[in-house]
Amino acid sequence: MQRSLETEHYTLTDYCGWEGDWELIQGMPLAMSPSPGVAHQRVSMRIARQMDQALDQCPHCEVLFETDVEFSEDTVVRPDVLVICHPPKGDRLTRAPELIFEVVSKKTARRDEVAKFQLYQDEGVAHYVLVYPEARKAKVYRLTEGEYRKVGDFHDETHSFELSKCIIPCDFSRLWRRRA
């Protein structure tokens, strides 16, 4: 007699008790270690700095860096950089950000390009950007009628993200090199 294997399903309660860095997508735990490399952190910081500067005049929106987003009781992710245009619920994010940047590496490509792409689309994240430091390229998607439509591939161009309460320009050339 063959025994069926049941898939384990974890929740936010389980997640809060775990040691180390994890994400939880539809009850499935995904380890985030080892920590991101220098190139990943460098690009993430440049994105966050540029977004933060662009939001200096907007009293409604703010940029956050590696912050947990609790989409449901069994889904918690930690995007590299995100922009919210609503006040957080206490110290937690429980609503979809309007803009998410994920810096893609060989280790995270499948998660970022497939699992998170579908999750963010389903959760209503208005703009999703996949950033590829080695290729010096960013793929920008915009949610239209419930589906992501590709806006384009950006290398050294500027693109403006139209959020619900402001417009944020992003100069992608600034992600790959230091300003003079």
Rank of each mutant, 00 (worst) to 15 (best):
I47Y: 02
P88H: 00
P79S: 02
V125I: 07
A54K: 05
G124I: 03
D156M: 08
M1F: 09
V129G: 02
T108S: 15
D156F: 09
K116V: 06
R78C: 13
D171M: 06
R49M: 11
A180I: 13
D80I: 02
F172S: 00
V151D: 06
P36E: 08
A180E: 13
P29G: 08
S72T: 10
R42C: 05
D156A: 12
Y132N: 01
I25G: 02
A96H: 06
P36I: 08
R111W: 06
K106A: 15
P88D: 00
F154T: 00
C85W: 01
A48Q: 04
P97V: 03
E123R: 15
Q57H: 10
K150G: 09
E147H: 10
D74L: 06
R174S: 10
S44I: 04
S173E: 13
P87Y: 02
V76S: 08
T13D: 12
S4E: 14
M32P: 03
F161A: 06
S33P: 04
L5I: 14
A109Q: 14
V76N: 03
S72W: 11
F117G: 04
L93P: 00
T158R: 10
F161N: 01
M28C: 14
C85E: 01
A109Y: 08
G124A: 03
E66Y: 01
V38A: 13
D21Y: 13
G27T: 01
E102V: 05
V140Q: 00
D68S: 14
L12E: 13
H127Y: 15
A135W: 09
F101D: 00
I84K: 05
H86Q: 11
S105M: 09
D153M: 03
E70S: 11
Q57F: 12
T158I: 10
D91T: 08
T108V: 05
T13Q: 12
R49Y: 11
D112G: 09
R78N: 08
G90H: 03
Y148K: 06
K107S: 15
